[in-house]
Amino acid sequence: MNIFRLAGDMSHVFSILVLLLRLRVAKNAQGISVRTHELFLIVFLTRYLDLFTTFYSLYNSIMKILYIVSTASIIYTIKFQEPIKSTYDKSQDSFLYWQFAVAPCAVLASVTHLIGSGISGFSFIELLWTFSIYLESIAILPQLIVLQRYREVENLTGNYIFFMGAYRFLYILNWIYRANFEAHYQHHWVVYICGVLQTLLYVDFFYYYFKSKKSGGRFTLPT
């Protein structure tokens, strides 16, 4: 564990808390994409199967369970809890995630896992782990699309996405740190490439976020 990873994980937890708070305080789901969180739930459920096979640390296990439970709670709140449920606009959150996210990532993961380990080294848990890495890299897309449609970004919504992006950025620093200071450390290029791609998706958002913070004005996205 290093400071970048811990800060990254905390930023992720904070982002989830901000979103849950935002849903409860504002009592609406305007500008929030439930599809992004459904994708994250798939990511966590497929990646954290190692909860049953490998024990890393108590911290690691607790955080995994926390991510699964809190993400499920976000989805439940938006889809089933009134009055929030009736404010959720399905027609604005229409990213075709099976066709454009889940299926392509499943194909890509199958191909790269088979190339990497061959038929003899095939492992279903490993395949799902690789799939989750690919899927996480684009899971924020539905949220960014919804944001673009609403254009005016509500304060807490902006903060929740900011901390989500900060989490990914801090993970890049964490890998640089680990590569330099950890013995027995092995690179994993799929993890790195997906991590960088995921961070790049936030760049545009960061630009307008900081611009609005600097001017102290309202946060709106350009058309």
Binding site: R5, D9, H12, Y56, N60, M63, K64, Y67, I133, Y171, N174, W175, R178, A179, E182, H184, Y185, Q186, H187, H188, V190, V191, Y192
Partner: peptide
């Protein structure tokens, strides 16, 4: 033991 990037992370 060797540790691979991503494997022991969240």
């Amino acid at each position: 033991a060797k540790v691979t990037a991503g494997k022991d992370e969240l």
